[in-house]
Design a protein around this nucleic acid. Structure first.
Lengths: 248, 248
DNA sequence: ACCTGAACACCGTTCAAGT
DNA sequence: ACCTGAACACCGTTCAAGT
């Protein structure tokens, strides 16, 4: 259901087809007149428009606001119309995920040194998905064949690892491990500030409470960024030692 | 809503109270007779019974099968009865999470060397939650004050880090980083085997496909375990270098 | 092929009524 | 205090009917 649908010519001869509005663009408020049932003259929906509308809905109402009904309304169609273009709501989430994957910064691979590239990629990956954590369960189970832009990201990262002298049989494992860390860290970004406040139980967990208080004393940047940096540098350090000599 | 509710004595004098069935135990099939409305003689539900029933439901029907209606049915009550003991379905998930946290193995801290303890804890943590990934979004945002067993786990780990010479101001950050990796890895366990099959797009991502094929050649244990081990050892190695000299 | 509109089989949650 | 039963305001999804 995620294949690209070839733009289809209508069977009737139409030498100068009337300039149709872009599919997926919300109808102007002027066109309040409700559409009659039946196939419309011009296609109204496509996967691109659905993706864009979903992203707008998410950014304005959050993932709770992303319902098939709300999505349809923002596109000016009935909810059932969506099912001509996606098989399910999960399909919509997949479209969104693949769009976001294209925003992850892989530009440093093959240009900057390996560790710099990994650092840039991982921070960017975490930042993008920390605003979209409801997608993480979807990504984790997502066969890459259905997400071309996600696949392109993996290709860039893999090539970067290979060119940096990373042993080929360990590349995928290393990427999977880094990705696991990135996804977990994306959740951590969304945690409330006082998540580690033990409240009335504080005196029962003295070591923990002391360590939490001690961290708070450091006038650091966000604690979530400190933890991410600490873990990421350990992973980069450990994985970097696996590389074979290469001029870069 | 998660406070422990003190067992309450009924106000009426009851010198030899009839041996009441344990609360939360599903009614024997014999007692088919429907309860009348109104407060029952003996309390039927409590948080313990709800937790146990939820865990049974999850293990038999999965998280999709964990609905308030199904949970109530397994306990022999109406769905609305649950709301006398939990504020919401999220509260139920919290009870389940805290129960599972107690199953994570922290026994090696303070007994075995630091790296052995971390390794045992992390593997156990991942294994427990890989069967309960729908809880991960809940844990990530969960104030520890509401989850006493989870808090106890953090206390044991924190003490282990401190006693091993870990600088106090970095302990929480290190635990948070390890936990992020564990949660992400828990998702990875649930991924389908062919998740990295690029299908028809394979020739567009040659480096990635080659690395995936290369990994498959290694007759390893589960790829997810290889990736977890690789990342965990890097984290342990990197964090271990932060420790100050201590005799252990 | 691609829309509408009605319907289906659910959800979690609330609340009056009962004891 | 703690249950039942009815009701509420949703969900995602299906499908006949229309053009």
């Amino acid at each position: 259901m995620l294949e690209i649908q070839a733009a289809e010519r209508l069977p009737m001869p139409a030498p100068t087809p009337a300039p149709e509005p872009e599919p997926g663009v919300a109808p102007s408020p002027a066109s309040k007149a409700r559409r009659r049932a039946g196939r419309p003259m011009a296609r109204i929906l496509d996967q691109n428009g659905i993706t864009t509308a979903a992203l707008e809905l998410i950014s304005s109402k959050g993932y709770d606001g992303l319902t098939m009904a709300a999505l349809a309304r923002s596109l000016g169609v009935a909810p059932s119309a969506l099912y001509n273009h996606v098989a399910s709501k999960d399909d919509v989430l997949l479209l969104v995920e693949d769009h976001l994957a294209a925003m992850v910064d892989v530009s440093a691979f093959g240009v900057e040194p390996w560790d710099v590239a990994v650092r840039r990629w991982a921070w960017s990956y975490r930042d993008v998905f920390s605003e979209h954590t409801p997608l993480i369960p979807v990504i984790a189970v997502l066969p890459v064949a259905n997400a071309p832009k996600t696949l392109a990201m993996y290709e860039a990262v893999t090539a970067g690892f290979r060119d940096a002298g990373f042993p080929e049989e360990k590349i995928i494992s290393a990427i999977v491990a880094l990705e696991a860390f990135v996804f977990g860290a994306a959740y951590d970004v969304t945690a409330p500030e006082d998540i580690f406040d033990a409240g009335s139980l504080a005196d029962q967990v003295p070591n923990f409470t002391a360590a939490v208080d001690r961290l708070a004393l450091e006038q650091h940047p966000r604690p979530t960024d400190v933890a991410f940096s600490l873990g990421l540098e350990a992973l980069i350090g450990g994985f970097g030692a696996l590389r074979q000599a290469v001029s870069d």
